[in-house]
Nucleic acid binder design. Sequence first.
DNA 1: CGTGGCCCCGCTG
DNA 2: CAGCGGGGCCACG
Length: 148
Amino acid sequence: MWIVRHHKLTVFFTEENNMLQSVRLSLLPASLPPSYHPFCEIFENYLNGKQVSWPAYNQELLTPFQKLVFAAVVTIPYGETRTYKEVASMIGRPKAYRAVAQALKHNPFPLVIPCHRVVSSNFPQDIGGYTPDPEIKKILLTLEGVLF
DNA sequence: CGTGGCCCCGCTG
DNA sequence: CAGCGGGGCCACG
């Protein structure tokens, strides 16, 4: 388990075979000291407001539907948002927006798969859901320069 | 504003 | 196989 600290967020990730295995975000500071791994610098750069190229991530545990959804979500440009409905249309299933939300809820690679860029149809009044905390979603969108 | 169909996936019995 | 619960959406009042 590797840890990257930011002034507002802490990122935890695991790596194996030069691939991300999991990513987790927390609003709370880590109780463990920061650690060093080549991927840490990528997360640090992102948290400092830079656009980065993410490492590969392990897709083995993803369902076919999740793979479809995530493949669409990774194409959303930095600093832009799409609605759940728009993502559903991107994968050719315009009525599956609720299922899209379910898939994103279980995103094992937040930041890398930028589910924070997927928002409610009446954004910015309603930002849409996010785990573990919608506040993290706001922090990430602000970091990317999205205006509310 | 709130409410109720509607739709689709994945989990559960 | 049926039922149900979501990080939603839209029409309606």
